[in-house]
Amino acid sequence: MPAALAALLLVVPVVALVVAAPWGTLAERLASQAVGEALVISLGTSLATVLVCLLLGTPLAWVLARLDLPGLGLLRALVAVPLVLPPVVAGVALVTAFGRTGVVGAPLREAFGLTLPYTTAGVVLAHVFCAMPFYVLSVEGALRSAGERCDAVAATLGASRWYAFRRVVLPLAVPGVLAGCVLAWARSLGEFGATITFAGNFPGTTQTMPSLVYTALQADADDARALALVLLAVSLAVLAGLRHRWLDPLRGRRRERA
């Protein structure tokens, strides 16, 4: 019984959304300018988030997986904090750090005239803050399983750390990197709390799809349902994509042989 209850709890809201969606007027509801802008911002910022994760998160994952430095355990714990932090709290933290009068934000504005809050770049910053931990932890796991032994063998063969990383470690970790990208992307696409707290909800600059759903819900619930349906479709597509990536293809092959 509890199992059935749990299943119902998870399934009913989604089914209700699909059933109650205004299918007849779906096309015209989604054709508005605000929807187009929000979709572009959401896709753009989520892709930018993945890119930042790749460029900055990969080295961090490598440091966590391979180096043996004092304080790394603490660093790993800190990296994981945004995973469990309520997104609104993340937004407040971001405002405190990068806001106009923030610890980093004020000097940044004075020195370069650069402001992050209420800009599209601010949206990306908020998304990176929330999505990067997913990416880093996923890639760190992949780098670990890619094996220190491969590193050792590569080193005896004359490979520098960088050469070994490029030619051995990273290629072996590709499935984990892809999984991390998808996780970070999905997290970014759905991010709402930190974004609206730090970057606001301005159509054309910081209004993402989730923010638009929230706005629409205040005015016309059917509009909100139509938008929610789009996000649901995207989520299902991600899930379907992950099913293949989730299983490490290399490891699968090794098991077959054994």
Binding site: R149, V168, L172
Partner: peptide, 25 residues
């Protein structure tokens, strides 16, 4: 030259690329 217990070959490279690795590096 190190040959670990089960060979420790790089799974993503062909046999030829594995052997060439030390020279390329």
């Amino acid at each position: 030259g190190l040959v670990p217990q089960d060979g420790g070959l790089f799974e993503h490279l062909t046999a030829l690329e594995n052997v060439a690795f030390g020279l390329r590096a």
